[in-house]
Design a protein around this nucleic acid. Structure first.
Length: 276
DNA sequence: CACCATGTTCCTTG
DNA sequence: CCAAGGAACATGGT
């Protein structure tokens, strides 16, 4: 269920259940998500650990453990394309997609990931390569303007995790629509006056999505749209997105037909009427 | 059967 | 050096 707003809402949801609590033991059922380690190396590191903090960095969930001699203090969980983390007080029924099972002093946290593109590891070197957090206070329009040193299309550039952390395929399309900038525009052709507009759009779209996901949790609805069913199951327009997956539909702002193209092997959606 | 899908990394080609 | 494309990972839905 990934993309920054979904992970952020999940972290806020899980935090009160986990922070300050003790992880009793962990079972890892598939080797791939804990690369480059092996399950038998990882499990001993994740038993009898007190959780000091749970945070998000890009699309990673970062578990910070109370230090123990010779043991890593972090666990990284990435949900990939299809991962989910579920906390329950009752013992969960095992499922075929279970990747890791964490038993806590007062409940169970299950990591499920049918496609197993996700990550579950204490190896945290990937964090050092990430660009700035778009919602942090030190992320400024001037900071964003550094993307303008490349000839890559702006949408491709925004999705590069070394440039800006956490912007995925759906929200890249959505926030460029908000900013009125075509996803195909070369980054070095973004005008000076447009960087603050894009900066605002990034923050607004991501913040609104976090709030929407939190409301969904409160209402007991699964926050990520594909979990409500599958692509297209929004039947009649329950989709919160203005351009994503709306090829040929009229733009809500100007009425032009939404277009789709491919960039870097991914689908991009935009409105030719309001995005230049 | 074909094609598509929220992600990241690595490799090759121009 | 840069940009673009493809592959890899693996599964499920339409």
């Amino acid at each position: 269920m990934p993309e920054l707003p979904e992970i952020e809402a999940l972290v806020r949801r899980l935090r009160p259940h986990l922070e300050g609590h003790r992880l009793v033991s962990t079972r890892v059922l598939h080797p791939r998500p804990c690369r480059p380690s092996a399950p038998s190396d990882l499990e001993p590191l994740l038993r009898d650990r007190r959780l000091l903090g749970l945070h998000r960095r890009a699309k990673y969930l970062v578990f910070n453990w109370e230090p123990k001699p010779a043991l890593p203090t972090t666990l990284l969980v990435h949900l990939g394309m299809t991962g989910s983390l579920v906390f329950s007080e009752a013992i969960p029924v095992g499922g075929t997609h279970d990747v890791a099972l964490m038993e806590w002093d007062h409940g169970h946290l299950t990591f499920q990931d049918p496609r197993r593109f996700g990550l579950f590891t204490c190896e945290d070197a990937v964090l050092a390569r990430l660009g700035p957090e778009p919602l942090s206070t030190d992320f400024t329009p001037g900071n964003l303007a550094r993307l303008g040193t490349s000839r890559q299309p702006i949408k491709v550039r925004l999705m590069d995790p070394t440039q800006v952390a956490g912007i995925g395929n759906i929200y890249a399309s959505e926030l460029l629509h908000r900013a009125g900038i075509s996803p195909r525009r070369r980054s070095d052709r973004i005008r000076d006056a447009e960087w603050p507009v894009l900066h605002d759009a990034i923050r607004q779209v991501l913040e609104e999505a976090i709030a929407r996901n939190l409301r969904a949790y409160e209402a007991g609805i699964s926050p990520y749209y594909h979990e409500a069913g599958t692509r297209g199951s929004w039947a009649d327009d329950a989709s919160p997105f203005l351009v994503y997956d709306r090829e040929k539909e009229p733009c809500a702002r100007c009425g032009s037909a939404i277009r789709r193209c491919e960039q870097g092997g991914r689908s991009t959606y935009w409105c030719p009427g309001c995005q230049r």
